[in-house]
Amino acid sequence: MTDHATEVAMGERFEFGANWAQFLNVLNDDRIALAEQSLLNMLGGSNLQGKRFLDIGSGSGLFSLVARRLGATVHSFDYDPQSVACTAELKRRYFPNDPDWVVGHGSALDKDYLQTLGQWDIVYSWGVLHHTGAMWQALENVTPLVRQGGTLFIAIYNYQRVMTPVWTWVKRAYNRLPKGLRWLVLGPALVRLWGPRTIYDLARGKPFHTWRHYAEHGVRGMSAWRDVVDWVGGYPFEVAKPEEIFDFFYKKGFSLRRLNTCGGGLGCNEFVFSNKPASE
């Protein structure tokens, strides 16, 4: 925890948990239902009954909540203390005193901690491992957590030849500015990210339609504003081409069950791997 606070103070890490704490203020049943459907769409099936679900970098705790609602036994952990608190808050709201949902503090880079967790039917880490500061090591570390025949569901930022260096600079600048001056980065980034879509909505007579209905359009039940802050501030920041992630896990005996890319643009590529060769 001290390491996290030091990194934040040095401008080397974004406070994801503080952003997630604000998201919990707008979380409702509709957003939870959207998140639930998005998870089932990627994993297949109608529930997770009897499954053991490990949420690496649980953030708001939304997808740990969804997994528990779907019947899984859940273990959630995060490196950011405020994210741990957010996840614990969702457990308190929806599953108080539930022994089948454990919330803890840990890092995907801490091999000693990871070795205490054992193996899981589903290892889930959406948009997390590229924020560790050592993405490839984190990917290496989480691999043994997936039991034979189990599932790994990860999302990793897409590599863009031109824009990746630009966004790296933006994110670093945001975190190194005093909080009172971060609007100098956030404002222009908001215009860049949302300007074209806002103009399009105005042109078709539906002002701010996409913004207001972002949870439905984004599928995962998230908040437009909180996603903007998360994107602009999200640092450390690493990326990978889809084929790099595929090759990495293929060499470890995993087979790709499902792939959802961002079309070569901004955002995450989603991968669902099975811990067994395709021939099986």
Rank of each mutant, 00 (worst) to 15 (best):
L48S: 06
R52V: 05
E36N: 10
A5C: 08
E15F: 00
R13E: 04
H4D: 06
E36P: 00
L39N: 09
F23S: 05
G44Q: 02
E12D: 10
L27Y: 08
L27A: 06
R31A: 07
G44K: 06
L48Y: 07
F14T: 01
K51M: 13
E7R: 14
L43M: 05
T6M: 09
L40A: 00
N19P: 01
V26F: 08
N41I: 00
L48E: 03
R13C: 06
A18D: 14
K51Q: 13
N47H: 15
F14R: 12
N19I: 00
Q22C: 12
D30L: 02
E36C: 12
S38I: 04
L43D: 01
N41Y: 00
G50W: 06
D30Q: 12
A21F: 04
I32E: 10
S58T: 15
F53I: 01
R31N: 05
A9R: 12
T6Q: 14
L43A: 06
I32C: 02
R31M: 06
R52Q: 14
S46Q: 15
D55F: 10
F53H: 01
N25W: 00
S58Y: 01
G17Y: 04
D55P: 04
G17N: 07
L43V: 06
D3V: 15
E12K: 10
F53E: 07
F53K: 01
E36G: 09
L24N: 06
Q37I: 08
N25G: 01
N19Y: 02
F23N: 08
N19T: 06
F16T: 11
G50R: 10
G57H: 09
M1T: 14
D29V: 05
D29S: 11
E12A: 08
D30K: 09
N25R: 14
F14S: 04
H4F: 15
L39K: 11
G44I: 04
V8T: 02
D30F: 00
A35E: 04
A21P: 02
E7C: 08
G50I: 04
G50Q: 07
T2Y: 01
M1E: 14
T6F: 01
L24K: 07
D29R: 12
I32N: 04
S46P: 05
V26R: 14
E15S: 07
E36F: 03
G44C: 06
V8M: 06
L24Y: 04
A33S: 13
A21S: 15
L24R: 12
G17H: 10
L34C: 00
R13W: 01
M10D: 15
G50A: 07
S46T: 15
Q37E: 13
L24Q: 10
D3N: 15
G11H: 11
L43Y: 03
I32L: 08
K51D: 01
E36L: 11
F16N: 13
G17F: 04
M42W: 05
A5V: 09
R52E: 10
E15H: 03
A5D: 11
L24P: 08
Q37N: 14
N41W: 00
F23Y: 10
G11R: 12
I32V: 11
A18V: 12
S58K: 05
